[in-house]
Design a protein around this nucleic acid. Structure first.
Length: 832
RNA sequence: GCCAAAGUGGCGGAACUGGCAGACGCGCACGACUCAAACUCGUGUUCCUCCGGGAGUGUGGGUUCGAUUCCCACCUUUGGCACCA
């Protein structure tokens, strides 16, 4: 009697065999087409989560499929091993972050191996290794030397729990909380290092070179937040003792507006409270009020300040500005609804056509002058109930009166376009585009990260550590407890160095880099993780890049996935990388939820542990279940009973392959029909692999298995069609359930090792074609009969056959057909 | 408020270009095997039904011979953004 399906025996056996033979090692080979399959690298948090399996095993299956299709496939793995949790865990357990991290990595390597994925472990990269962060630091220096990294003092987001500053992308939600620990952030004025991501804003909006999901494109586009408009220079008048501003020079005051067509309706100006011009224009009589408002605004949290539903507040500065389009003299206010971080921190207020300005003007009883009016209406600034945002004709706007203004934004709007032209001609403004995207703040006041390779010298200022002195090694002997200041700062000797410029005394930067910096280029370190002449071996780069398929979670849409694109484009402009984009194709998986439909978390107690599942069912079953149970891009709740489906499937596969007996009788046509089903399934499975539709791959295989049981009973066993079915079946299974496919391939079919070196089978279109079809007969669009006809029946015969159908005639009720529609190979619809 | 995605049996989901709605699986019911249970195998499983059929893919309309699929309006859920000038 044949042995039972025993995954705990066969899975480790093949895993070690594959490893021993280096079966999945991918080397540069110009004779073969390359395929770089990449899945987002894990953070070594300690245990492999079912979410890792969900992200990785379908990606592995597809990489395996591409391999069978004849590609030279590289599928690497590594660890994003710098970061806060290591420090938090270290504080809690009193172990060094390094020890904690590397112990976790070792543990996760074991767990990753149990998936049976085709990782090329030789290419493993660990971002906290010196040989890795050496090049992270090199990239920082390069960015600095090319003017893309700079230091500035600004109000930044600070997480009081993580005790560090954060990038704008890492602050989430309405309450502006830390992406990692969900604590609401606070503002701090600090000098920090930034990367000039905004320089690439326009290029980042162009997705034409890449095949990325619409959803990610939308999220990134919204995040970058492009607005078209104009910048216009107003003149702020210096204060004078007698009130309405003195004549004289004045200060230029630049504003950004998306609505230059409403310039004639500007009745006041508003500056952000932090705006540098505030002090200069404030009059003595207003000074105390202005100062009080400024300090009050500074005390407020962002959440309070940016709540959209609160009453408008603000204070008159006493100063006035001159509107360059009509020389009107208008008052300058400060208000917290104007943000220093967007545009120039100053606006012209057009209350007649902007809701916020309208609310402000009504509250403080400021003038409202309508300048756009739909035909047939007549606005009155003193009585309008709300701002008018819609289209109309320009009024009160000198020579532009009568110009049409539409709903369109920017240059597409004729009113906006002619005004911009005129502003440029007169030299008082110009077309301007503003982005919501901010520069990337990368300084972190934490220990467990790559040190920023910069040196401060009292005479020479900041200079990068020379390349030949990299890496700047992170010392082990520090007090890493978080204090809100960089732990490296308190090391007695580490920060002392010499200035690379003058050789005098120098001080190292003690902040470390955001770990998103490490993960922005890890796909390049996989190319050559031990290479020591640069971040990667150019030969490997030229062969493998770009990444052909990148898979990972949608939650990185506005973080990692923007950073890595920026990083690539900056690298290209610095002459290090090539091509427009790092990842040609992106696909996102959804999330596996707990059985209660909620996000898995330790506190909810709904976490599914993959190790226990592998012990109970084997990796192949878990792989198959994860591909089968939901659409991959959507995910869904785990169903512990549902796992039984794929588990039974594999048992039934095993039984079919190992316990098939000779047929008692042979039914006619069984071979033809079996071949048809096999090749139809192959066609479908091939298509689904291309489309990342993993759930229907598994269901198609189940369906075919059900049919093969039927064919067995009808006597197909031993025929050439049966042998072909077994062969193709295992090849189709191989990417999904690599262990059981290998076992049956070698041990039962007696083929030579390994199935994973076999080509993907070819669809025999002739075999897949049906020769008899069930023609649907409809009367008035309702299904009334199915008749069996030859597949290439002609239209006239098909129609006649339908009209002859007894059921159809019954429903035609003696009436004459008004129209007969024939859909080749599908149906006939009789309309009466 | 703005932007995006999604609503199909008891459940997860399938239906490729407008053409048999509910593949495949879970669950459930019945039967076989068993002293018994589990496993396994078989049959059935959208709802209503006078067994002829009728209704049915969030709701209401529209286009069409024909709509889960296309168009319009609305409802619900999820995600993102939100005083961004």
């Amino acid at each position: 009697m044949a042995p039972k399906y025993n995954p705990t025996k066969i899975e480790p056996k093949w895993q070690s065999q594959w490893k021993k033979d280096g079966l999945y090692q991918a080397d540069v080979d110009p004779s073969k087409p390359k395929f770089y399959a990449l899945t987002m690298l894990p953070y070594p948090s300690g245990d492999l989560h079912i979410g890792h399996w969900y992200a990785m095993t379908p990606s592995d299956a597809r990489a395996r499929y591409m391999r069978m299709k004849g590609y030279n496939v590289m599928f690497p793995i590594g660890f994003d091993s710098f970061g806060l949790p290591a420090e938090n865990a270290a504080v809690k357990r009193n172990t060094h972050p390094r020890e904690w991290t590397y112990a976790n990595i070792e543990r996760m390597r074991q767990q990753l191996s149990s998936m049976g994925a085709m990782w090329d472990w030789r290419r493993e990269a660990v971002s906290s290794d010196e040989k890795y962060y050496h090049w992270t630091q090199y990239y920082f220096s390069q960015l600095y030397k090319h003017g893309l990294a700079y230091r500035k003092m600004s109000p930044v987001d600070f997480c009081p729990t993580c005790n560090t500053t954060l990038a704008r992308e890492q602050v989430w939600g309405e309450d502006r909380h830390c992406e990692r620990c969900e604590t609401p952030v606070i503002k701090k004025d600090l000098e920090q290092w930034f990367f000039s991501t905004t320089k690439y804003a326009e290029e980042l909006l162009d997705f034409s070179p890449i095949d990325w999901p619409e959803r990610v494109q939308t999220l990134q586009t919204n995040w970058i937040g492009r607005s078209e408009g104009a910048s216009v220079i107003f003149t702020a008048l210096p204060p004078s003792p007698n009130g309405r501003g003195a004549g004289g020079e004045g200060f230029p005051m630049e504003i950004f507006t998306t609505r230059p067509d409403t310039l004639w309706g500007a009745t006041f100006m508003v500056l952000a409270p932090e705006h540098p011009l505030v002090d200069q224009i404030t009059t003595e009589t207003q000074r105390s009020q202005v100062e009080e408002y400024k300090s009050q605004a500074a005390r407020q949290s962002d959440i309070e300040r940016e709540a959209t539903d609160k009453e408008k507040t603000g204070v008159f500065t006493g100063g006035y500005a001159v509107n360059p389009v009509n020389n009107a003299r208008i008052p300058i206010w400060i208000a917290d609804y104007v943000l220093m971080t967007y545009g120039t921190g100053a606006i012209m207020a057009v209350p007649a056509h902007d809701e916020r300005d309208f609310a402000f003007a009504r509250y403080f009883d400021l003038e409202i002058i309508p300048v756009i009016q739909p035909e047939g209406e007549s606005f009155d600034g003193t009585t309008m109930p709300e701002a008018y945002i819609g289209p109309g004709l320009m009024i009160n706007s000198a020579q532009f009166n009568g110009t049409a203004v539409t709903d369109e934004k920017g240059r597409k709007n004729p009113g906006i376009s002619v005004v911009i032209d005129w502003l440029e001609e007169k030299g008082i403004g110009n077309e301007s585009i503003n982005y919501r995207l901010r520069d990337w703040l990368i300084s972190r006041q934490r220990y467990w990260g790559a040190p920023i390779p910069m040196v401060w010298c009292d005479t020479c200022g900041w200079n990068p550590v020379p390349d030949d002195q990299l890496p700047v090694v992170l010392p082990d002997d520090v007090e890493w407890r978080p204090t809100g200041e960089s732990p490296l700062k308190f090391h007695p000797t580490w920060s002392k160095t010499t200035c690379p410029e003058c050789g005098g005394e120098g001080q190292r930067e003690t902040d470390t880099m955001d770990t998103f910096m490490c993960s922005s280029w890890y796909h390049l370190r996989y190319l050559s993780p031990d290479y020591d002449k640069g971040p990667f071996d150019p030969e490997e780069y030229n062969y493998w890049m770009p990444v052909d398929t990148y898979t990972g979670g949608i939650e990185h849409a506005t973080m990692h996935l923007i950073y890595t694109r920026f990083f690539h484009k900056a690298g290209r402009d610095m002459g290090i990388m090539k091509g427009p984009e790092p990842m040609a194709q992106l696909r996102n998986q959804g999330m596996v939820l707990g059985e209660d439909g909620e996000k898995m978390s330790k506190s909810r107690g709904n976490v599914i542990a993959p190790d226990a599942l592998v012990n109970a069912y084997g990796a192949d079953t878990i792989r198959a279940y994860l591909m089968f149970f939901a659409r991959w891009d959507l995910g869904g709740p785990w169903d512990s009973q549902g796992v039984g489906g794929p588990a039974r499937w594999l048992k039934r596969v095993w039984t079919l392959f190992t316990e098939t007996t000779k047929p008692l009788k042979v039914s006619a046509g069984v071979e033809r029909e079996l071949r048809r089903k096999v090749h139809q399934t192959l066609k479908r499975v091939t298509y689904d692999f291309e489309q990342f539709e993993f759930n229907t791959i598994v269901s198609s295989l189940m369906e075919l298995l059900n049919y093969m049981y039927q064919a067995r009973d009808e006597g197909a066993v031993g025929t050439p069609a049966w042998d072909e079915a077994l062969d193709i079946y295992l090849r189709m299974m191989a990417p999904v359930t690599p262990h059981v496919a290998e076992e049956l391939w070698v041990e039962v079919l007696g083929n030579s090792y390994s199935i994973h070196n076999q080509p993907w089978p070819q669809v025999d279109e002739k075999a897949a074609k049906v020769d008899e079809i069930a023609l649907i007969v409809q009367v008035n669009g309702k299904l009334r009969d199915r008749i069996t006809v030859h597949a290439d029946i002609n239209e006239a015969d098909a129609k006649q056959a339908a009209l002859d159908s007894e059921a159809a005639q019954r429903f035609m009720d003696g009436k004459q057909p008004r129209k007969v529609i024939y859909v080749p190979g599908r149906l006939v619809n009789i309309v009466v």
